[in-house]
Design a protein around this nucleic acid. Structure first.
Lengths: 249, 249
DNA sequence: ATTAAAATTGCAAAAAAACGCAGAAAGTAT
DNA sequence: ATACTTTCTGCGTTTTTTTGCAATTTTAAT
């Protein structure tokens, strides 16, 4: 394999996933980690990526599949994913929406956790299939181009047949008076079904989305059992939720 | 062999694969690596390609555009995908299995083609969502870790509800007496259902897989309406299929 | 603070390139 | 066809590049 080919592969992976691990690349490409590090250094010297301890990050955190993702979101979503991961126990059934935060969660699950994840999001489901002990159930139906989530009556009726332990709800916008809102009507229908099909609903959101709203209503904040953000639980931004008895993590 | 002839071959290979290895060309053309290097130098001097350590890159070699996973026998699959793409017409319903050849097909569809693709494969479906005018229907069920395809009774019963125009069958092994075979029992069940649910079944395979077999039987070759490989239709390897009245492309 | 993972550094082995040269092949003129 | 020139090819040697390994330092996580 040519060096250039290898570096192109690395660059592509970085731009696709926003981050890469030296160890992983070493395995995938079947070369030593030293070589990977030298490649990363080369690419970093040419301003193609940012080298960090353990791997590399893409220059812009713009995800290939989610071109509108805010630039600083990655670090925050990582924090959120870590917090969310602590809530999942063995043998749980977990419903998840789409979104980069949920992809991030897949990457932060303990490697021995045995649980079943159910999702209609292609990128999210694909990410969970990389985990060694997680079972993945995919909700089928028409795939929405924007979000790469399955939407429609078939998907909703399938979700209704499930009673999951937890639903992780990645949200587009949330505020205390309007509740959770979204900009895609079809996706909203799916989210509503998910909320009804889970014993606990946990909202994952970066603080940026708090106090914003979108055209379509998903649910009032009373429907949420917990909110996870990258902020400290005492943050005043979260006061309205605390007052309604919603747990903050 | 003439120098010009050799260089023309090299140029063709570079443009096809985006990259070539000196060692490989030396073998293919049965000349020393020195000669290959001199040829590459010549071509590089004339701005026909870019010479690098170990081989050469095509002029269009791009740091960023790289297939998400290095596809085995990529060049052959590209040829197959090009041929297969010509069969799809507007408003068709197309069933597809998983596999890298089917991913490749997604990349070679005419940009204005309007059709509906139905698949249970996460990577394949994801690839089709990048196409501007293709609708994607995802078959839901449990995701098989090996193949990232949904498998199980639910998936099969959904497929049975469909009557598609074409089924593109990516196969793992095929030979004239055993027919199409595979190494994953669950995937075989899904493939069987797909074959029954399509008016035409078209088998996509690189020639390497012809005359090999796997433990589980999918279908006899009589069930196939067409076979597409990277070979010329007249190739003697395809003689048994031609004799059974199966179209070759 | 302790510990484990990863980076860095220097070094040696391997792979590939460059160079010069001699013989082979191809082309040209007689 | 023959002799001559020019170009091309393969081989051995030297030089450069690349890669993997081991020892040490740095970094990150608990």
């Amino acid at each position: 394999m040519l060096k250039q080919e290898r570096q192109a592969y690395i660059l592509h992976q970085v731009n696709l996933h926003n981050q890469v691990l030296s160890a992983g690349l070493s395995q995938e490409l079947d070369v030593s980690e030293d070589t990977i590090r030298r490649d990363l250094q080369d690419l970093a010297d040419n301003n193609k990526l940012i080298k960090v301890h353990g791997g590399a990050l893409s220059l812009s955190f713009n995800d290939y599949h989610y071109p509108s993702t805010p630039i600083y979101a990655h670090a925050q979503k990582k924090l959120i994913a870590r917090k969310a991961a602590t809530l999942i126990q063995n043998d749980m059934f977990v419903l998840t929406t789409g979104g980069t935060t949920l992809i991030e969660l897949a990457r932060h699950l303990p490697p021995t956790l045995k649980a079943t994840f159910i999702s209609g999001s292609l990128p999210v489901a694909l990410e969970y299939t990389h985990h060694p002990t997680i079972d993945v159930i995919l909700i089928g139906d028409k795939v929405s181009k924007n979000s790469r989530i399955t939407v429609g009556g078939e998907a909703i009726s399938k979700i209704r047949q499930i009673k999951a332990d937890i639903c992780f709800l990645g949200v587009n916008a949330i505020d205390a008076s309007n509740g959770v809102t979204d900009n895609d009507w079809e996706v909203v229908q799916v989210k509503k079904a998910m909320i009804e099909s889970a014993r606990k609903v946990i909202c994952l959101t970066i603080s940026e989305k708090i106090n914003s709203f979108q055209p379509f209503h998903v649910c009032p904040i009373e429907d949420l059992d917990m909110v996870i953000t990258e902020l400290q639980p005492e943050d005043p931004l979260l006061e309205p939720y605390r007052r309604k008895g919603i747990q903050i993590l």
